[in-house]
């Protein structure tokens, strides 16, 4: 039988691939793409718990809908910023932190 654990293992896999993508990213856009993957893993987890074990399945699904909207807003703003910045210099490559020290 497929259980919530199956879905969590799948989501963990997606999340970790996304995390690796973030750690390994060479440009801001790649970070955004990898973060999208991580957020999708979160949604998968929540939907799976909602229809397997959650006490209030409908409320978890409603939250996932909200999360999707929020992620879209966040990504929209992120992409606008990246585009705006790239028009002025090459700093969409993360390497561009020349003037700011870590």
């Amino acid at each position: 039988m497929i259980t919530a654990a199956h879905y969590t293992v799948l989501a963990s896999g997606l999340f970790c691939i996304g995390l690796f993508g973030v750690l390994n990213a060479r440009s801001a856009l790649r970070v955004v793409v990898a973060v999208e993957l991580m957020l999708n893993a979160v949604n998968l987890n929540l939907v799976a718990y909602a229809v397997t074990s959650g006490a209030r399945p409908a409320s978890a699904l409603a939250f996932v809908l909200l999360l999707i909207v929020i992620a879209a807003a966040e990504v929209g703003l992120a992409l606008a910023l990246v585009v705006a910045l790239s028009r002025r210099s090459d700093i969409t490559a993360i390497d561009g932190y020349a003037t700011l020290k870590g």
Partner: peptide, 9 residues
């Protein structure tokens, strides 16, 4: 996490 899939709301 051992529960199976129930009908979705």
């Amino acid at each position: 996490l051992r529960a199976g899939v129930r009908p979705a709301p």
